[in-house]
């Protein structure tokens, strides 16, 4: 990968990047998550330091960085899942659509209904495929069978898995392959129609073929959702994301359009990491 990139003449890269920047300035998408000076501690451990990041609508934002740099922590802060760890303490501001997510009047459950999450390991519930999808709507009080049927079909179609499972909706979800399970989990997330989908290394437990399917799906989903994806796979980040943030030791080293990050990073550490020189 590094070889392929160096093959492009430096001047050419610069020109392309400039065009790119100009284009994006015209059509900057609306900001859904606005993070300002976010700090987070696990007990004494300072896991996130002064994070400033904007997540935009209808875009895929990739978060890359070496293991333990705080990617998952940041992602879980966005839907406040990180608070499941009792020792966590945060300072700073995260605004979701202009409102602080730490505001007392906003309940975490409400936030999480609008900000969905897909996990590293496929984690369907030990229930039927149908019940997995219907779970979210049901806990939010939707009980009408016909509406649920419709939501289930729509979500499964949305995750491009409908055709594979439509004849076995009432079978246990554990009968599905790993890749299918992960798309089922994405469908489960779609069922409550969130605005943002957070994905923590969603393909790291999948084989290449299932990975491509999920990537394809992510590209489709970004038409309707803001997507934040953590990945260790550089090619994946460059293939599917619009913006990339490079984390290191709990800090954002660099955050920019993906092509800028990959072709013309300003920070030496970013370049080193992308070219596999450390991490």
């Amino acid at each position: 990968m590094a070889g392929a990139m160096t093959a492009i003449p430096q001047a050419e890269v610069k020109k392309r990047a400039n065009i790119e920047v100009l284009r994006t300035l015209e059509q900057e998408k609306e900001v859904v998550f606005d993070t300002q000076n976010l700090n987070l501690w696990y007990g004494e451990k300072h896991a996130l330091r002064d994070i400033n990041l904007d997540i935009h609508e209808e875009e895929v934002t990739a978060i890359i960085g070496p293991s333990g740099c705080g990617k998952s922590t940041y992602l879980k802060t966005l839907n406040r899942m990180v608070e499941l760890v009792p020792s966590v303490r945060t300072t700073g501001v995260i605004q979701y659509k202009g409102k602080s997510i730490f505001d007392k009047s906003l309940r975490v459950e409400e936030l999480r209904t609008q900000v969905g999450m897909v996990f590293q390991k496929p984690n369907p519930f030990p229930k039927s495929i149908y019940e997995n999808i219907a779970y979210g709507p049901k806990i939010h009080g939707i009980r009408n069978k016909m509406i649920l049927d419709e939501i289930v079909e729509k979500s499964l179609r949305g995750a491009y898995i409908w055709d594979e499972v439509k004849d076995r909706l009432h079978d246990n979800a554990y009968g599905l392959s790993g890749g299918q399970q992960q798309r089922l989990c994405i469908a489960r997330c779609l069922a409550i129609e969130p605005d943002v989908i957070l994905m923590d290394e969603p393909t790291s437990a999948l084989d290449p073929k299932s990975t491509l399917k999920v990537e394809e799906l992510i590209r489709e989903l970004k038409k309707d959702y803001a997507i934040v994806i953590v990945t260790h796979n550089m090619q994946q980040a460059s293939r599917i994301s619009d913006r990339t943030a490079f984390f290191l030791d709990g800090e954002v080293v660099e955050y920019d359009r993906t092509d800028v990050i990959f072709n013309e990073p300003t920070d030496q550490r970013t370049e080193d990491y992308i070219n596999g020189r450390f991490g």
Binding site: T113, Q114, P137, H140, G141, I142, M146, I147, D149, E150, I151, K154, A191, I192, E193
Partner: peptide, 18 residues
């Protein structure tokens, strides 16, 4: 299936249940 063909808006339904 439901009679009207309006698509379901889950978030709207959810906020109604609040």
């Amino acid at each position: 299936m439901r009679t009207n063909n309006e698509p379901v808006h889950v978030q709207e339904l959810i906020s109604k249940k609040k």
